[in-house]
Design a protein around this nucleic acid. Structure first.
Lengths: 117, 117
DNA sequence: TTGATATTTCAACATTAGTTGATATATGTC
DNA sequence: GACATATATCAACTAATGTTGAAATATCAA
């Protein structure tokens, strides 16, 4: 993963609308949803949704495929996992004890990244 | 974690420069670095660095404290862990087998989020 | 082929972000 | 106090983003 790709991915998550869209797709992985489903669930005008879906797809965080006259969007879960690893992998480099302390202290710690070791 | 806060955090990571800055701070957690250290390591003009550090701090992803005439910036690791959880926590809702398949298939899978279960 | 539905593209506009150089503020040293 | 260093703020400009309504495209159904 390179900085440029990674920042593009975070940019795709940097609008509240796009974040809601992506999380909806993550929740509905691996099957995905068609555009109209997303529009209805999040109450976003079709035009604007199209614009944001385009950005998400362009970042690589989702794939599209035509399904008759519908367009089905699916979250790219492996890429999501990669970007999480990219962000966290060198945490507290050379100080694994400190790193473990952070994880233990976090209420979210139990579902959070663990070192390979 | 709310959408608004989360998208603000991702916005803080959405520029290549800020992402480099934050990852540098993560690598140097828990001690942090002073502004001049960051400027030298990443070769960013002081003015511009100040602008981006402000955005990172404003998002909550880092804290600052004065240290004589230096300003020391430290990554907020717990918040980083929270945002990772926020992004991934409802993955494949109601389909844990699919979710596990994604994790197993990812080369990054071993250091990536695991469900609480 | 005609009409209906799903989605995208386009044009226009308002808003916001990124960069730079000059200047200001705060701290430490002599 | 005078000066140097570290960092932040300001002003100005350029570029990019987000939103909307209208129009285009693609597919299906009759």
């Amino acid at each position: 993963m390179q900085t440029q790709q990674a920042s593009k991915i975070f940019e795709a998550l940097s609008s509240g609308l796009r974040l809601d869209i992506f999380r909806l797709l993550v929740r509905h992985a691996p099957d995905g949803l068609v555009q109209g489903d997303i529009a209805r669930r999040l109450d976003i005008p079709s035009t604007n949704l199209s614009f944001h879906l385009r950005a998400i797809v362009h970042s690589g965080l989702a794939h599209v495929e035509r399904e008759g006259r519908f367009m089905r969007y699916k979250a790219n879960i492996p890429l999501m996992l990669d970007i999480v690893a990219y962000l966290t992998e060198e945490c507290c480099s050379g100080n694994p004890e400190a790193c473990q302390r952070f994880r233990d202290a976090s209420p979210a710690g139990r579902i959070l990244p663990r070192r390979v070791d």
